[in-house]
Computed example of a mutant assay.
Amino acid sequence: MNSLQWDDVRYFLTLSREGSLSASARLLEVEHSTVARRVGNLEKTLKVKLFDRLARGWVLTREGVELSRQAESLEMEMLSLWRTALANTTLSGTVRLSAPPILMSDFLVPRLSSFQEKYREIELELIGESRGADLSRREADIALRMSEPKSPQLVARLLCNVNYKLYGVPAWLERPESERSFIGLDLRSGCWQKIWLEKYVSPRSYALRTNDIRAMYHAALSGIGMALLPRFMVAEDSRLVSIPMPKSPPPCPLYLVMHSDVRRAPRIRATADFLIDLVQSHAHNF
């Protein structure tokens, strides 16, 4: 019997969850042919057909469903082994950090040089994503999130509250409210910023909509309209001013989140401490 390869099992689990080669390949950052080959290898090793290859996607067979449950248990054991080993490492290696894209690009990246100078043996891998990375499955070691995690396996520390304000070029302050134009999130968005702003703004007042907050920022700079933006994004840009509104939007809490098994690992702890100090030293910008 051929030896069982953990990577084959890992690819099998990803495909069982995603249901398609293309989605699995994107998540694993490989070609879709690699996913198919790995799953095929596992089927040959186990001598079991795991998937029915259908036009609508790859569907688990009855045997595949049963084996996926056992594979998930094996995955949990492997991840536990990894976290235990990580806790005994030194101040070297890779740390994966997940954060909202705009926080990553506009706040973190410009301020990371001091971390690199202090911890030259730690390599940061930055993942800008709006969804919450699954820390239990090693998608990230540390996550900055705008909501408190619910899992008892995760530990979270509230760093600060992120405030949002309406920003525009100074000329908007001199225009009557009836002549003001706004930049909003696209109609398909269900996020709270869009819902909150539309309580105060007529649909006819929007000059532009987009699903990209950086595009909103540049549109505000160009004078197209006023945009609801996080304060840290605009705090050091004197070209935009805060536009008074009848009521301020609610602040969003920003949490630093780690898995409880890795929080004492030296390189994870050093990175987390740096992020805590960084955010707290710039709390006036949030």
Rank of each mutant, 00 (worst) to 15 (best):
261 D>W: 09
222 S>H: 01
263 R>S: 11
243 I>W: 08
231 R>S: 15
245 M>I: 09
242 S>A: 09
243 I>Y: 09
232 F>L: 06
246 P>W: 12
223 G>W: 02
238 S>V: 05
241 V>C: 04
261 D>I: 00
244 P>M: 10
231 R>L: 01
227 A>C: 05
248 S>C: 05
260 S>Q: 12
256 L>I: 14
220 A>Y: 01
235 A>Q: 05
230 P>W: 02
226 M>E: 13
246 P>T: 10
231 R>C: 06
246 P>N: 11
230 P>S: 04
258 M>V: 15
258 M>C: 15
222 S>T: 08
259 H>M: 12
264 R>V: 08
224 I>V: 13
225 G>Q: 02
262 V>C: 09
252 C>S: 15
264 R>D: 15
227 A>Q: 00
260 S>W: 00
249 P>R: 13
239 R>L: 06
221 L>G: 07
257 V>P: 11
244 P>Q: 12
257 V>S: 09
256 L>G: 11
249 P>D: 12
263 R>C: 12
247 K>V: 14
240 L>Y: 09
240 L>I: 09
246 P>D: 13
240 L>N: 03
227 A>G: 00
230 P>T: 08
220 A>K: 04
245 M>Q: 12
238 S>N: 07
220 A>R: 02
221 L>A: 05
255 Y>C: 13
250 P>G: 05
253 P>H: 13
252 C>E: 15
265 A>Y: 01
263 R>T: 06
265 A>W: 07
253 P>M: 12
237 D>I: 04
261 D>K: 14
241 V>A: 00
249 P>W: 10
220 A>S: 14
229 L>M: 07
220 A>W: 06
262 V>Y: 01
244 P>W: 09
256 L>T: 05
227 A>N: 01
259 H>A: 03
246 P>C: 10
230 P>V: 05
233 M>A: 04
264 R>A: 12
254 L>T: 10
250 P>T: 09
238 S>E: 08
232 F>H: 08
240 L>A: 04
235 A>V: 02
225 G>H: 06
238 S>F: 00
249 P>E: 08
241 V>L: 01
224 I>C: 09
262 V>K: 11
247 K>G: 01
242 S>F: 00
239 R>C: 02
253 P>T: 12
231 R>E: 15
256 L>E: 08
251 P>D: 13
262 V>S: 15
264 R>I: 07
224 I>L: 15
242 S>G: 03
258 M>E: 14
259 H>I: 07
